[in-house]
Design a binder for these strands. Sequence first.
DNA 1: TATTGTTATACTCTATAACTATA
DNA 2: TATAGTTATAGAGTATAACAATA
Lengths: 166, 166
Amino acid sequence: MAVPSRSFDSTELGAYFALIEVSSLLRHTVEQQLRAAGDLSYVQFQLLARLGDSPGGSCRMTDLADGVVYSRSGLTYQAQLLEQRGLVTRAPSTDDERGTTVTITEQGRNTLTDVFPGHIDVLNELLFEPLARTDVEALADVLGRVRDHMRSAPPRSAAPRRRKTS
Amino acid sequence: MAVPSRSFDSTELGAYFALIEVSSLLRHTVEQQLRAAGDLSYVQFQLLARLGDSPGGSCRMTDLADGVVYSRSGLTYQAQLLEQRGLVTRAPSTDDERGTTVTITEQGRNTLTDVFPGHIDVLNELLFEPLARTDVEALADVLGRVRDHMRSAPPRSAAPRRRKTS
DNA sequence: TATTGTTATACTCTATAACTATA
DNA sequence: TATAGTTATAGAGTATAACAATA
């Protein structure tokens, strides 16, 4: 089927291990900051941030699910938590009554405001501080291409992410 | 204290978002592959892999905790699971009787062998396929520096990782 | 007293499957 | 029939605090 497995050289291993360790450490630190500053999990922050960037502060559940959460029920769970805290509202979509429109509230935006400065601080201190401008550009370029590739090419051998049931 | 928060430009945002999305998607896919091929979580795989690379296949709990798991109790939990499945053994350290020496078993090495090829396939397809050699080198270089920085500089504003209790 | 590790416990998160309602 | 979302439920993982044993 696919190209037979080959081992990696030290550069490839280095890139892989560094990617895993950096993202893991970064996420862990950010999670603590978000929890301390606004009592948000990382997923909850991502949902709020996406809503905050959307026109009207609204998204359908499906739009929120793509790229943030991997199961619909997981998204429902998180949306419930956010709704209970008054950070978002949920209402049936006007155009498609099957859908649910999630909207960020003023309180939700305030929470984002509370949380952003510390978030930025963490990123500056942990991620950007040791990097030159060209490094950041290289990261954005290379990882951007990897992301586009991942989005366009569902894994062949591993489990597909969003296919017709079977 | 620290430099006051400043916003990020689009390149910085791009690097950050791409890093998060790539690592998240990669980890998710790898996790499914590890689960399918050897019934391992990612953390369990990391522990086994580290043991497999250690001289004698042994590590102390503390050495395992650093860089893989964030709490001692979490490591104990995972070590128990691996021990119950016969993939590692645990025994009091000979030199320091407070310590526990964890050792990978032959069965543990077999599990690693079962899991490696698919793991490599996933990395090739998802991470390396769209990259030129120079891209991989750039990733290893830049992220390697970030990792070194993170290791050496415990976050100033966020919670420290391993400090004298307070 | 400080360090290593375990235990008890509680909580968060995620996923699967069954279900409802609309297109 | 297919899609959008919810619910019920179960399981995996993590963290905190209290604890025991050794340095």
